[in-house]
Design a protein around this nucleic acid. Structure first.
Length: 588
RNA sequence: GCUCCCUUAGCUCAGUUGGACAGAGCAGCUGCCUUCUAAGCAGCCGGUCGUUGGUUCGAAUCCAACAGGGAGCGCCA
């Protein structure tokens, strides 16, 4: 509907210019999608805002605009409604022509971005020697979805996994392993991710309790950052073990990422501090080198510092993040990525941190004009009790276990239903459906929630067959595929002109044509739940259509139209779900 | 103590440049399978949008105060 809206908006502004005695200053009269179906397709609310300026009642203004409007080729006569709204209802034959045109468009009416940017999407970011948990789940799923959308819009997207593979935790871990399992550091003894996690926990405990151990650990970090061969070797082995565990999860989630851990920026860290000093931003305070922030106050009303080099000489994550910003924004000729936009998908708890780092990057002059750094925050994953999600024993939930359980539950549902319906199926079919449905359910549950709020995790809800869930959407798609199978194809044997008559046909067509608007809105604020709400609505409207109107057995004059609507529905679902990172099924 | 976020139906949530009587889903209740279809469809029930003020022609949306919940706050990431 983007095309139609633009056309109507143009004519609306022309009519306004003719109808109203306006000042020279630019006056807007925006046309927006109607808030309710009974108001038609579009509504214009501008009259109310102009009432005071023109000293006329809003309904009179609206009527004057309507009197000058020339839209009869696209709409029924526009009507003034309520306090001064103008409602537009597009003619069915215009909708039909749009459907016809979109049927064979690969992009389903969604334009390429006018300005195609280089974008870095920084997401997932697990830590070496720790299992991935539900916190990484949201970053991974949301980040992947955003990257897919931006790519589809024509941007050049670089998906970076800013792995926590550097820093204090390695000092702890290496120091601890030197004591308890030295052979693991030389590679003579194999440790897997589970062992590492256990060692990490012990090391953390010692670190918190034992000052001497803390000192050793800090020294070990400095040795690592200085590139001591034995420390580097131990570190490399630890990373290798973790990486395998992560990759299994990414494969399962169908997520592509380029690994670019914190260690990548190690050599650039001294230069960050040096250049901050050159820029006159660096202050040594209590032995630590830091930049004091503008507009961010601490307890006593004093400005908060961003520490870039610790008292012991070690660098921390702020330094790494600053180095990463520079590398990403630098031109390719200078060894950078040439990004014009960098998107960070992390939990909302890091908002302050990113605000601080972005501010320092700005003040240091590292953000070229026209480039933008953006934190895309998301809320916590909570359990049924409203508290941070934990296992019954109180441990963090491992992502591996969570995904396995989703697939297992999907499988049990499927097997049970097949028994009830006396269906037979190959084991391959069951396994594939369970995998697809289980993973889709987890992803969709996450994406369908407004990302900025906390989100309550529930297997029962996400796997429910009715409601705003992945299984419901997938089933709507499966139904269309069922028609395709029975009818041989969704392409009419004797294609006739599309003619929208039944209300169910019209509302399905309208929903289908709204796809482009929704994707642009989603890109605007990077809220995947916009697309989810749309696809859920499409599924509902399709199910109504499917329930109330025959397709294959439709009268000859309706059949091509209904087949076309089915085809466009399937393609829209398929593309929409693909942008969410969800695979479809032909049967389930 | 300071900063940021949240509070909408019994439950989980939509509602983002302020717009028409506040919307879904689940749960509860009532109907509909000789039909390409029931993992579905049609309908009913359910709300002082945390509270109180303010701005506005118009506020769930913006501002202020208060209450309740969450997160963060100098050398972890």
């Amino acid at each position: 509907m983007l095309k139609l809206r633009n056309a109507l908006q143009h004519r609306l502004l022309e009519a306004m210019a003719q109808a109203l005695p306006l000042p020279d200053a630019a006056v807007e009269f925006p046309l927006e999608p109607a808030t309710r179906p009974e108001f038609g397709d579009f509504q214009a609310n501008g009259a109310m805002g102009l009432a005071k300026m023109l000293g006329q009642p809003p309904r009179q203004i609206a009527q004057a605009v309507v009197d000058h409007l020339q839209v009869e080729d696209l709409c029924y006569p526009p009507r003034v409604a309520g306090p001064g709204f103008i409602n537009f209802t597009v003619r069915p034959e215009v909708l039909a022509a749009e459907v016809q045109e979109r049927l064979d468009q690969p992009r389903l009416g969604v334009p390429m971005a006018q300005v195609r940017q280089r974008v870095v999407v920084d997401f997932s970011s697990p830590n070496i020697a720790k299992e991935m948990h539900v916190g990484h789940l949201r970053s991974t799923i949301i980040g992947d979805c955003i990257a897919r959308l931006l790519s589809f819009r024509g941007h050049r997207v670089l998906r970076l996994n800013h792995l926590g593979d550097w820093g204090t935790q390695f000092g702890m871990l290496i120091t601890h392993l030197k004591h308890v399992a030295p052979r693991s550091l030389s590679g003579e003894e194999h440790v897997d991710l589970g062992d590492l996690v256990a060692f990490y926990r012990q090391a953390k405990k010692r670190f918190d309790e034992d000052e001497g151990f803390q000192e050793h650990s800090r020294r070990e970090v400095v040795r690592l950052q200085a590139g001591e061969p034995d420390a580097l070797k131990a570190w490399g082995l630890l990373c290798q073990q973790s990486r395998q565990g992560f990759q299994a999860i990414y494969d399962c989630l169908d997520v592509q990422l380029m690994e670019r851990g914190e260690s990548f920026y190690n050599d650039a860290l001294p230069k960050v501090v040096e250049d901050l000093e050159q820029a006159g931003l660096l202050v040594v305070d209590n032995g630590a080198r830091c930049v004091f922030l503008e507009g961010m106050m601490g307890k006593d009303g004093q400005p908060l510092p961003l520490i870039v080099q610790k008292r012991d000489g070690g660098y921390n994550y702020a330094t790494t993040d600053l180095a990463a910003i520079r590398q990403r924004l630098a031109s390719p000729a200078a060894g950078g990525e040439g990004a014009e936009r960098v998107v960070y998908v992390t939990d909302a708890g890091q908002s302050n941190h990113f605000a601080a780092v972005f501010q320092v990057a700005q003040r240091a002059g590292w953000v070229p004009k026209g480039c933008c750094l953006q934190h895309v925050p998301f809320g916590l994953v909570q359990g049924a009790d409203g508290k941070k999600l934990k296992t019954r024993s109180g441990a963090t939930v491992r992502l591996r276990d969570l995904l396995e359980e989703a697939v297992e539950r999907a499988r049990r549902d499927l097997v049970e239903r097949m028994a009830r319906e006396q269906r037979q199926a190959e084991e391959d079919f069951v396994a594939q459906v369970a995998e697809t449905v289980g993973i889709a359910a987890v992803k969709y549950a996450d994406l369908s929630q407004n990302r900025t709020t906390n989100y309550q995790f529930s297997f029962d809800r996400m796997l429910a067959l009715q409601g705003n869930t992945a299984p419901y959407l997938l089933y709507a798609y499966v139904r269309i595929q069922g028609i395709a199978r029975q009818g041989g194809s969704l392409v009419a044997a004797e294609p006739g002109a599309i003619c929208l008559q039944a209300p169910q046909e019209l509302s399905l067509a309208r929903q289908l044509l709204n796809f482009d608007e929704v994707l642009l809105a989603m890109e605007q604020d990077l809220l995947p739940n916009r697309l989810c709400t749309y696809l859920f609505g499409l599924s509902q409207i399709f199910n109504r259509f499917y329930d109330q109107l025959p397709v294959l057995k439709a009268p000859a004059q309706s059949r091509p139209t209904r087949l076309a609507l089915c085809r466009l529905s399937a393609r829209t679902m398929d593309l929409g779900l693909a942008l969410l990172g969800i695979k479809t099924l032909d049967r389930m």
